[in-house]
Design a protein around this nucleic acid. Structure first.
Lengths: 233, 233
DNA sequence: CGTCCAATAAGTATTACATTTTAGTGAAGC
DNA sequence: GCTTCACTAAAATGTAATACTTATTGGACG
């Protein structure tokens, strides 16, 4: 895990972040630094460092004479992995999961098409390896092991696309997949059709069939979208 | 502009951010806080606040006994609007512009399809208005006025998709369009074909023709991609 | 060699105080 | 009554001095 770690200010963040993103403090709420100081029993410096970070995530804005104000949701940096994690852990997880899965649906097929053109032999091998790993773990309550391969597979595809923005979405995909496994927004065993599709995508990338890689990946993501509609109403 | 604004720490950021993202301090470089203190003639507190923000953008990591280390590029929060802006202003703008345009190509068509299903009458009207605005300003060196309508058009589409992640990409698109106009990665007058396509997208959304909206938007974005290949090699 | 321990260097945290901005208030003037 | 302007006070912003923690380094000792 990237955060929640050391440093007093990090602990402050780990409390405040979720509280804000969960809507516990609705937009417009003002938090005064000295109140936070007392509440968490930390020094001013620590509070200010935490506030600075929240500010850079555009969750709050700090103005003199008024205090630290919670910003409206539309202004949040919803692509910040930390914000994503907080929101996925919170109450509007379903909505969040839907947004993110839709993003996947848009990006991953394109990335797969690019990957088919650009993937290195090594990446092709990794793809096949993880696809087979998914097959091997797709039966008998091995969701955790399956998840590892699933995440790795999609990371490789996104990285192989050669686009750094796409590559960075690997983190988002990881959160989504982990989130849906963890929170049981998934059948007890993975959909066999999806597993097959992954194997086929690996094949399409290996054989440089861009269109097929794109089409198959689109099937995977629309499947994920459909699954979400069934399991998380 | 969202940043560079008040506060000493913000000014520090406005210096350090570009320096790091431009590669002036290559990954692995360590910056010591007391060195920064002296260099910018500010107090420890200010330096630490700035460092905290850079850390949350994952541009640097701060460890005891070693200092503030610049992280490798792959770990940066490349979706942070601030980071995007710094990089677009820097030396690897072409590469950056290509990544972002590719992201647009992936997302906008999907968003347009959704918009055709979900756009409110008001949003349809705005779309038409801005499309017509583009037509009106597409000739005779009115690139600035054209840009305003272009940005607004895409913002409305992305917002109308109903997906908050897509909506947030409006900022990114704005940066891209502004960037390419500003840096003359564009013909002196906009491509007439593109202008027509915008009008048609507005029409498709208004008539709830999801497929057509998606297809036309895909034409726009692939056009943008192609234009980039021609003008920024 | 390898282990342990002390020195040290760096970020981390607290405290107290000074400065700056600005919302809010209320009085003067139109 | 409404505007305007200056004052006040609240809150964030910035500085400085000081103490704390914790990795790393390197040397002493087994």
């Amino acid at each position: 895990m990237t955060s929640e770690g050391r440093g007093l200010h990090a602990r402050l963040l780990a409390c405040l972040g979720p509280e804000i993103t969960s809507g516990e403090y609705p937009p417009g709420t003002v938090l005064r630094t000295d109140a936070l100081e007392r509440r968490f029993d930390v020094s001013r410096t620590v509070v200010r460092e935490a506030v600075r970070v929240l500010e850079s995530m555009r969750l709050v804005s700090s103005r003199r004479r008024v205090g630290v104000t919670v910003r409206p949701t539309e202004e949040w940096n919803v692509f910040d992995p930390q914000v994503i994690r907080w929101r996925l852990a919170g109450s509007d997880r379903p909505r969040q999961l839907r947004s993110l899965t839709m993003l996947r649906s848009a990006v991953e097929p394109v990335a797969a098409g690019l990957a088919a053109r650009l993937a290195t032999p090594r990446q092709c091998a990794e793809l096949t390896e993880h696809a087979l790993g998914m097959v091997a773990t797709s039966r008998g309550q091995q969701l955790d092991a399956y998840l590892v391969h699933d995440v790795a597979f999609h990371r490789v595809v996104l990285r192989a696309s050669g686009n750094e923005m796409f590559a960075k979405l690997g983190d988002v995909v990881a959160e989504v997949l982990a989130g849906r496994t963890e929170h049981h927004v998934m059948f007890t065993d993975p959909d066999p059709a999806a597993v097959t599709l992954h194997v086929q995508v690996a094949e399409a990338v290996r054989t440089r069939d861009e269109d097929r890689a794109e089409r198959l990946t689109r099937e995977i993501t629309t499947g994920a979208m459909a699954e979400l509609d069934v399991l998380a109403p």
